[in-house]
Simulated assay, not measured.
Amino acid sequence: MSFRSTINTYFNNHAETSENHENTSLQTHYYKTTKDTGMQMLENLFIHSDGYEINSISKEHGEISVLMKKGKKAFIVATVIMVRPYYTAIDFSVTTESVLPFDFGYSTKVIQQLYQWINKDLSLITTRETS
């Protein structure tokens, strides 16, 4: 990870995963599951975790928006896309609400923690798309 990316991680209030992200912990994770199972698992995760409140669910678009109320306030959008049968991508976008225009890497840590929780329930295939 470059110096600029490291600085940007700490002095920004937003983090999101992507296919070819420079930070390997923020690369899209692919799981051996279906879209519906992935959506249901995320819904259950947020319902049963303290400090999270589901704002809306769009099963058609594969998106769940969540408000994080415990600790620092944050808005999370989780996206579940089935690339092919039993090969499903899960991405996150996290924006921290604060007085300052940066969160010292908190939004990145939230994404890393969410992936750790998901890895306990779903079978991780890879963090890179394979053709």
Rank of each mutant, 00 (worst) to 15 (best):
T79C: 11
V99N: 13
F102N: 02
F3A: 14
F75K: 13
V99E: 13
R4E: 15
D103R: 08
S18F: 13
E43Q: 11
I81Y: 12
F3Y: 14
M82N: 08
A89V: 00
N55T: 08
N20T: 10
Y115I: 05
Y87E: 01
S58K: 13
T95W: 06
L42W: 08
N20I: 03
S5W: 03
H48L: 06
D91E: 10
T37M: 09
G71Y: 10
I64D: 02
Y52M: 10
Q27S: 00
R4S: 07
F46R: 10
N23R: 12
S65D: 13
K59T: 05
L124V: 12
F46D: 01
Y10C: 10
E19W: 09
D50L: 11
S107V: 01
S2L: 12
E97D: 14
P85L: 04
K59H: 13
H48E: 12
Y31P: 00
M41I: 14
K69V: 00
V99F: 15
V77W: 00
H14A: 09
A74S: 10
E63N: 09
D91K: 14
R84W: 04
W117M: 13
E16Q: 11
I118Q: 04
E129A: 08
S98L: 12
I7A: 15
T96W: 02
Y106H: 14
S5A: 10
S123W: 08
T33W: 01
K70C: 06
I81F: 07
K120W: 03
K32M: 05
T17F: 00
S123Q: 08
E43S: 08
F104W: 08
G51S: 07
V83K: 14
D91Y: 07
S58E: 02
K35V: 09
V66L: 02
Q27W: 03
E43W: 08
K109S: 12
